[in-house]
């Protein structure tokens, strides 16, 4: 039994702290994946010609064709926000669980 508890598996969290930590990880990765790759697949689904033109490319946003703005500018902003959000969540979790940072 004492040997059994030393296991780490991202699909089988070990303990309360890790359970919450891993749920945050999946949350961030899901948003990250859907925004990055889901958007490209969406462009593909709604396209009216093989070059990928659609209402998403016709739309003007801040001067940009919408798809160009979303990928070229917004995704990087989203990445930074996701990182900040993740860090705030983990900091909060560590504080709640009394996991002081060890240097």
């Amino acid at each position: 039994m004492s040997e059994d508890r030393y296991h780490i598996n991202i699909f089988k969290p070990n303990g309360e702290f890790q359970k919450t930590e891993i749920s945050y990880i999946w949350l961030i990765l899901a948003i990250w994946g859907i925004a990055t790759y889901g958007f490209q697949i969406l462009l593909r689904i709604v396209q009216r010609n093989p070059q990928g033109e659609s209402f998403l490319t016709d739309m003007n946003f801040l001067g940009f064709p919408f798809h160009y703005w979303f990928t070229g500018q917004f995704l990087i902003i989203l990445f930074i926000l996701l990182c900040i959000w993740f860090n705030i969540m983990i900091d909060g979790l560590e504080d709640r669980m009394g996991k002081g940072d060890v240097a």
Binding site: Y24, I28, L29, W32, L75, F79, L82, F86
Partner: peptide, 8 residues
């Protein structure tokens, strides 16, 4: 985007 993966 690689940095997001690296961080989490």
């Amino acid at each position: 985007g690689g940095y997001v993966m690296l961080l989490v």
